[in-house]
Design a protein around this nucleic acid. Structure first.
Length: 545
DNA sequence: ATAGGGTTAG
């Protein structure tokens, strides 16, 4: 049934998509899942066709299928939202609250707050929420966008959206702030409301961890003092947080002493404690110590977990040798542990780092056989190392394998590749950079201004032109992330230059004031970007970027 | 989606 869909749904005039052809080969003979099929279909279709497909009675939409599809489209936010909206008008399917939450998340990541709040309003109108989870998402997105104050405001106004605050949501906002390295802000909020929400051990653990994350272990200790003062007992989690905190701050000796104290105080040391030790000693190069802890934990009655193995494998790769990591890898498998994506990723990274690209690719294939598909991090690692080795073609090959729907590239992927295009600075490379830039913008990733300018500079210098779709042009003409109101990283102002866009090659600058409506008649435009510099920068003469 | 342990870069 879906195969039929695939055929009939193919657009008559498929838009030429550069670089990212749909995967014309499949690496595994097994049948891709339904959501994978759908994601590919959605990526290829234009809005009109898409409506037909999505509203077709042949597809039996369920909340689960919608959630999975949204997840597949995660790295193409605009498409994901388009999909969600079209399905929202389906004659006999209605979105679940979890799908709404996903959509809210995506809108938030796109920093499309208008859509975000529209979704929230719609949720409420349908009595599906918004719930605590929705607010966890919204606040996290605001914090990630560099707007922690806005996030706090949203938390404080939750009840106005029909979702009263409680200890859980209080702990959530604290955690969101702490994880974003805003321990100070979290602590201030904590001090104001700890009485009202009856802060518990979890609240204190969250804040302590927040201080540890920014390497301020003394503040964490101080907070634990407050905790005890108020009659709350630290838990094993609390101790594990501190232990990790010492390692993170480079206080290895203190970490070990702290661990000895834990033992002395008859703490029930668990696998998390041991994993922290293995990792902590390993990253500072104390491989023997890491191994010793690893070997001794079983004697203490604690079995390693996959995470413990991952920690050991990682540090062996980094500070010892990949060969020894291989031994541990095989050992863990022979003991019946199932390596997960992280295991493969740390291992593949190790192989890449030791210049073993071929073996890295072999392991990537081995993953697929083991129901453990490579994720975007896996691809990024391999792409990064190919780029570093100057094997740009190979990097692009791997990139193309990411294809459409199975594992879409993310912001890192684009950044890594675009940077790599400026190594050789051949005109072809710069052209690829231009195409990548347009594609990333198309998919809802805002390049940093540095990236944006660099690519435009490159194109200008080489005189290469890039085909661009009209919808993309809107975004290209809109500000970069740093220029958005309230700022991405905040506070930058004043562009380095003004950009003017001309239609090329047949239009002269005098015709630059072409109206947008005139462009709309064409499928694609070839544009040439010309820049006017403020100040003295003169790139054309010395021909350098 | 309430807290702690494995992935990521000089």
């Amino acid at each position: 049934m879906l195969a039929q869909q695939l055929k009939t749904a193919a657009p008559k005039n498929p838009k030429p998509s550069f670089l990212i052809p749909c995967r014309s080969f499949t690496t595994s003979p097994s049948h891709p899942s339904q959501d994978s099929h759908l994601a590919n279909l959605i990526l290829k279709s234009d809005p009109q066709t898409l409506t037909q497909i999505l509203h077709s009675p042949q597809i039996d939409w369920t909340s689960d299928l919608v959630d999975k599809t949204l997840k597949r489209l995660w790295n193409h936010g605009p498409k994901a939202l388009q999909f969600f909206r079209i399905l929202d008008h389906h004659p006999n399917y209605t979105h679940s609250c979890s799908s709404f939450d996903h959509a809210v998340d995506i809108a938030g990541r796109l920093r499309d707050y208008k859509s975000l709040w529209t979704l929230v309003a719609r949720m409420r109108a349908r009595r599906l929420g918004p719930g605590p989870r929705t607010f966890a998402i919204i606040t996290e997105r605001y914090v990630a966008a560099g707007k922690p104050d806005r996030a706090v405001k949203v938390f404080l106004s939750m009840h106005e959206h029909g979702c009263p605050q409680d200890l859980n949501s209080f702990n959530t906002i604290l955690d969101v702030l702490c994880k974003a390295k805003r321990a100070e802000k979290a602590y201030n909020l904590f001090k104001v409301f700890r009485g009202r929400f009856k802060a518990d051990c979890v609240s204190y653990n969250i804040i302590a961890n927040g201080w540890c994350l920014i390497k301020r272990t003394p503040k964490a200790l101080e907070l634990l003092g407050e905790m005890v003062e108020r009659g709350l007992d630290p838990s094993l989690t609390t101790f594990n947080i501190m232990l990790k905190g010492y390692f993170r701050a480079g206080q290895i000796k203190e970490a070990w002493e702290f661990f000895l104290q834990m033992k002395k105080r008859k703490c029930e040391i668990d696998v998390v404690t041991y994993t922290t030790l293995v990792h902590g000693f390993g990253v500072v190069g104390e491989i023997k110590k890491a191994r010793k802890v690893f070997d001794e934990m079983v004697g203490e009655g604690v079995l390693p977990s996959v995470a413990t193995y991952n920690a050991l494998i990682q540090v062996l790769c980094k500070k010892d040798s990949v060969e020894n990591a291989v031994v541990v890898f095989e050992e863990m498998v022979s003991k019946g542990y199932v390596p997960n994506v992280t295991t493969y990723n740390v291992f593949i990274r190790g192989l890449c780092h030791s210049g073993n690209m071929d073996r890295a690719l072999e392991f990537m294939d081995r993953m697929k056989g083991d129901e453990c598909d490579p994720n975007v991090q896996t691809y990024n690692v391999v792409i990064r190392y190919f780029c570093d080795a100057g094997e740009i073609e190979k990097a692009l090959n791997v990139f193309e394998k990411m294809g459409c729907g199975d594992c879409l590239p993310n912001l890192d992927t684009y950044n890594v590749l675009i940077s790599a295009m400026f190594v050789r600075k051949k005109p072809e490379d710069l052209l690829v950079a231009g195409k990548l830039l347009i594609e990333m913008v198309d998919r809802g990733f805002l390049p940093r201004r540095f990236t944006f300018n660099r690519v435009l500079d490159g194109l200008l210098l080489t005189g290469v032109s890039v085909p661009v779709e009209v919808s993309t042009l809107d975004v290209l003409l809109s500000p970069c992330v740093e220029d958005l109101p309230f700022g991405g990283s905040g506070g930058h102002s004043g562009a380095l230059f003004e950009r003017e866009i001309f239609l090329a090659p047949d239009l002269r600058p005098s015709q630059r004031a072409v109206k947008k409506q005139d462009w709309l008649n064409k499928d694609h435009l070839t544009i040439l970007v010309e820049m006017k510099y403020h100040g003295e920068r003169n790139l054309n003469k010395n021909n350098r970027l």
